[in-house]
Nucleic acid binder design. Structure first.
Lengths: 335, 335
DNA sequence: CACCATGATGGGAGCGTTCCCATTGTCAAC
DNA sequence: GTTGACAATGGGAACGCTCCCATCATGGTG
C-alpha cells in the first residue's frame, strides 16, 4: 500500500490551506459553502482518512470511548456489549472494547487508569465489577464514566460518575417475595451477590423460609461448572425444594445436576434463575428468571455518556428493574 | 489529572537525552547497563506511560494487533476471543477487539481495510466470515493476516495470508459417517455451511440416507430462535429420526422445539450439534457434538501472527480437527 | 603515536494533525 | 472616504515520540 494522502494533499487538490481542510474535517465554523464543498470532494476522491495518531497527538484526547468489561465470555455481558455497539453505531465515536479478567491484586481502578493513559478516550463505560472505596485515581482522571451493572459500595460522593444498575437489594426482595408466595419453605441458594442476598434474606427470614447457602468452588471462567458442582453438592445433602440461582449461567449448570440425579423440574424440584440471558428460554424446561433490562441499560449508558461528553447533561444514577419471565422451571409447592 | 510526564521529563530525571530514553523504552541496543537502570528507575518513579499517539505518529505503524470478529455474542466466537486474549497477554502487543456485524452490502475486505487505515495495526486476526474473490484491497495492505475459522472460497494464491480452520468438507464426511453407522435413514439438517454440507451429502447419498434440509428463517442475531423455528417446522412435517445441526446454538434451539412437542431425546429422536460450546455440556440431555479445537485455534493464530510480524516465520494454512464429544443426545437406531 | 572500529550518547528533523493568531477581503455605517 | 466589524483563510507552533546522523570517548592495532 503506497503512501496515503495527507491533509496537505487534500489542501493542494482543493486549492486551500491545511487549516481550512482541518476546519472542514472537524465541522468547525468559518468556511464558506463553496470551499467546504470543494474540500469534501477532494476528500472523497482520494478516499482520504485522517491519521488518527496525529489527530490524537495534537488534540491530546481522542474521539473514542472505552468499554471496559470483566470477561466478555459471560453471556450477560456479551449481550449488553452487543447492544452498546449497536447503540454507538453512527454516533461518531470509536468504541474500544477492552476485555479484562480481573485478578485479585488488580482493581478496576488500576485497569481503568492504565487504559485511560494509554488510550486517552473521551469517556468510559465500565460493565460489571465491584467498585469500592479506593476510587481516588479514577476520580482524578476527570473522565466521564458510566458504571453499568456494577456493585457500588461505600461511595458517598456520587456526583462525578454515573451508574446504571438494578436495585439489587430490592430485586432480592422481589425474588424472595415470589418464593414466599409459592410456599417453598427450604431453598438452596447458589451464587454470590451481597446486596441481592441481603434483600432476599430479610424477606425470607420474616416468612420463616430457611435458606441453605451453597459454597462455590471458584473455578474461574467456567461458570456453568460452578453451578453444576454447587448443585451437585447441595443435592447430596438435600432438605430443600427449590434452587435459587443468582445468575442464569449458574442455573443452567444446576439444571444439569438436577437431571443427572434423576429429578424432574419442576415436579420434584423448582429452580429460579436471574439475568434472562437468551439461552435461558431454551433450556428444558425453560428457566423461570428475572430478565435484566438489556436494551434500556445499553441505551441509557450510551445516552448518558455521550451527553456528558458533549456537555448537554450531568451525571445520573439510574435504577432499573428486571422483569419476571415465568418459564416452567418453578412451581408453587403442592400445585 | 495534571499534565503527565513525557519523555523529556524522564530524560531530565535520569540525566540523559530523550534519545536514550527512547532506546530504553523500545529495547534497542546501545545503552549501557547503568544508564538503562537509571532510566528505568525514573520511568518507574513517575509511573510514566509513553504517549501512544506520538509513538504511532512517528513510527507510522502501531504496536497493536486487531481482532476482527463477526458478532461477539456468538458463543463459539466469544470463547475463541477469550482464549486469544489470554494468549496475547504479556506478548507486548495491544489487542484491539473490533466487533462487526456484517451487513450484506459491506464485505469483510471493506471493513478490514477501513480498520487498517484507522488503526495502523501490525497485524490482523479475522475470526469467522466468508472470504471470497474480491480480496485485492486486503492483499494490497501488505499486512500480516490470519483468518480463523473462515470460509475461504475461490482464492488460489494463498501465500500472503494464513488461515486456521477445520476441514469443513472432511468434518462433514465424519459427521455423516457417524450417522451412517448409527442406522438413521432419514435426517433433518439445520444450518448452512457450504463445505460441511457438501461433505455430508456425498457420504450420506452413497449410503442411502435421505436428508431433509430445513429452511432457515434468518432472524439475525437470534441464533437460538433460528434453530427453534426451523426444528418446529421440520417436526410438523416429520419423516426423520435425527436432527443434525451445524452449530450447537442451533441445536439448543432445536432441542427446545423437540421437548415442546413432547418427544424424548434420544429415545424418540436423536440430535447432533457442532462446535462444542461450553453450554452444550449442560443441556438436557448433554449434546452430542463435534468440539472445535479452541485452544489450538487461539494458540496457533497468535503464534503465527506474531511470528510473521517479527519475521521469524512465513504464512501457513493450518487444518485442525474437531473431537467428537459423545453426549447423550444421539443414539443409534434400535438401541 | 596515529589510526580506526566500536559502543554510548546527544541533537535535529519529521510524523500529520489541531489550535491560535495574523492577515486579507467585504460591506455597512458614519 | 475612512473606520470598524466580521467572515474567510493562511501560517506557524506545538503535540510527544522515533529514527537517522553526528559526536565523543575508549581501547586495540599497526
Amino acid at each position: 500500500m503506497q503512501k496515503d494522502a495527507n491533509i496537505f494533499d487534500i489542501a493542494r487538490m482543493a486549492g486551500v490551506s491545511k487549516s481550512t481542510v482541518s476546519r472542514v474535517l472537524n465541522g468547525h465554523a468559518g468556511v464558506s459553502k463553496a470551499t467546504r464543498a470543494r474540500v469534501l470532494q477532494a476528500i472523497d476522491e482520494c478516499t482520504y482518512i485522517p491519521n488518527n495518531a496525529a489527530r490524537n497527538l495534537s488534540s491530546i484526547t481522542t474521539q473514542s470511548v472505552v468499554l471496559l468489561v470483566h470477561g466478555i465470555a459471560n453471556p450477560f455481558f456479551s449481550r449488553v456489549i452487543t447492544l452498546i455497539f449497536e447503540e454507538m453505531r453512527g454516533k461518531n465515536y470509536e468504541l474500544i472494547l477492552h476485555n479484562c479478567e480481573l485478578s485479585d491484586d488488580i482493581s478496576i481502578t488500576d485497569v481503568a487508569v492504565g487504559i485511560y493513559k494509554e488510550k486517552r478516550p473521551k469517556g468510559m463505560i465500565i460493565l460489571g465489577g465491584h467498585f469500592e472505596e479506593t476510587y481516588a485515581p479514577l476520580r482524578a482522571m476527570e473522565l466521564p464514566i458510566v458504571m453499568v451493572s456494577a456493585t457500588i459500595r461505600g461511595i458517598t460522593d456520587r456526583l462525578w460518575f454515573s451508574s446504571i444498575t438494578i436495585d439489587d437489594e430490592r430485586e432480592g426482595e422481589r425474588l424472595a417475595g415470589h418464593i414466599c408466595q409459592s410456599g417453598h419453605k427450604d431453598i438452596a441458594v447458589i451464587g454470590q451477590s451481597y446486596f441481592r442476598e441481603r434483600g432476599m434474606r430479610r424477606v425470607l427470614e420474616d416468612s420463616g423460609v430457611r435458606t441453605h447457602i451453597a459454597d462455590l468452588d471458584y473455578d474461574r471462567a467456567y461458570q456453568f461448572k460452578i453451578g453444576y458442582k454447587a448443585a451437585k453438592k447441595m443435592l447430596a445433602q438435600g432438605g430443600f425444594t427449590c434452587f435459587v440461582c443468582l445468575s442464569d449461567v449458574l442455573a443452567i449448570g444446576a439444571l444439569r445436576a438436577i437431571h443427572e440425579n434423576g429429578l424432574r423440574v419442576p415436579e420434584d424440584i423448582s429452580i429460579v434463575g436471574f439475568d434472562g440471558i437468551e439461552n435461558s428460554a431454551y433450556t428444558n424446561p425453560p428457566l423461570t428468571t428475572f430478565v435484566q433490562p438489556y436494551e434500556e441499560m445499553a441505551a441509557q449508558s450510551v445516552e448518558i455518556l455521550l451527553g456528558i461528553i458533549e456537555c448537554t447533561r450531568t451525571h445520573a444514577h439510574i435504577i432499573l428493574q428486571t422483569t419476571l419471565d415465568e418459564g416452567a422451571s418453578f412451581r408453587p409447592v403442592g400445585s
